[in-house]
């Protein structure tokens, strides 16, 4: 009997832990369309590099490039009020933040990456 209770408890807390890990996940989206431009490619690369270099040990911070010209992804335009290539941070509770200064900072790689890293850290803190 005790063994059964133990198994159920372990399974329960295991599931709780897995669920918690999932809800802590933050997506760092880079939204683009079929037509790629020089500046847009640069922004995508800077964002990806910033995430990989600063959050490589944090499996909950995930970079993902999304093509909004694909029919399945069109909803993102409305969901995040997108009007151009954008970097958006989003969690699984429906919170999101558009890092809309990327276009002003793209000429300076260090400032751009620092803005992405700070944005992710602030977004994570705001969740706690």
């Amino acid at each position: 009997m005790l063994k059964k209770i133990l198994i159920v408890a372990v399974a329960f807390f295991g599931l709780m832990g897995a669920a918690k890990a999932e809800t802590d996940k933050i997506m760092v989206y880079y939204f683009h369309s079929n037509v790629r431009c020089v500046t847009c490619n640069k922004m995508e690369a800077f964002t990806k590099e910033a995430v990989e270099a600063n959050f490589k040990d944090n499996k909950n911070i995930v970079f993902k490039a999304v093509n909004t010209d694909e029919p399945a992804n069109k909803h993102f335009l409305k969901d995040y009020s997108l009007y151009t290539k954008s970097v958006v941070l989003a969690d699984e509770q429906g919170n999101w933040k558009n890092l809309d200064k990327i276009w002003s900072l793209v000429r300076n790689e260090a400032d751009f990456k620092a803005y992405i890293v700070d944005g992710i850290n602030d977004f994570t803190k705001a969740k706690k």
Partner: peptide
């Protein structure tokens, strides 16, 4: 994309 970003 750049004009859309700044204009909007």
């Amino acid at each position: 994309p750049v004009s859309a970003a700044f204009f909007f």
